[in-house]
């Protein structure tokens, strides 16, 4: 009995057994790691501050996701998406990359985008929506570019078509 409990406890700690957060759909197991975020985080606290900290990042991601769902260039690709999960993981990712006190628990960029057949034009369309969301939050352009400099190389993992 004790051994069984121990096994159960250790299983709960492995990524495969990570519980599905409320409101989200289950996903296939994968290894959770900050390296899945696709870049090393910034260490300059001025950037995290310019984004308005965690609250600012949350608003930017929510706004960006809203814009994506109505952008005719992108809406179809996201039609079947789990937006609860997408918002959560994007917020974690941006917070982590901007040097905030967050861990990224989502999937690597290559595997999470592999099935979507994304083009460079669509990648840029998403960047434009992010820029508009950062503008709306009042993030200065040169600070926006600090984040975009980390996201830009992910084009090689995300674009498959």
């Amino acid at each position: 009995m004790i051994t069984l409990l121990a096994i159960a406890a250790s299983l709960a700690l492995t990524p495969a057994a990570m519980p599905t957060p409320p409101g989200e759909l289950p996903v296939d197991p994968y290894e959770v790691s900050n390296s899945n975020a696709g870049a090393e985080p910034l260490s300059d606290p001025a950037v995290f501050e310019a984004f308005g900290g965690i609250e600012g990042i949350d608003r930017i991601v929510d706004d960006m996701v809203e814009r994506i769902t109505v952008d005719p260039r992108l809406a179809d690709i996201f039609r079947a998406s789990d937006f609860v999960r997408l918002r959560r993981t994007l917020k974690e990712q941006f917070c982590y990359l901007l040097g905030g006190p967050c861990d990224y628990t989502g999937m690597p960029m290559r595997s999470s985008h592999a099935d979507h057949g994304i083009t460079t034009a669509e990648f840029n369309a998403l960047v434009e929506n992010l820029q508009l969301a950062m503008d709306a939050e009042g993030v200065p352009f040169r600070m926006q570019n600090r984040l975009l400099a980390l996201l830009a190389p992910m084009q090689r993992d995300i674009v498959t078509r």
Binding site: A39, A149, L150, A152, P153, Q155, R156
Partner: peptide, 8 residues
């Protein structure tokens, strides 16, 4: 790549 090669 002038734009995407930010890590190179």
């Amino acid at each position: 790549d002038a734009v995407y090669g930010q890590d190179r």
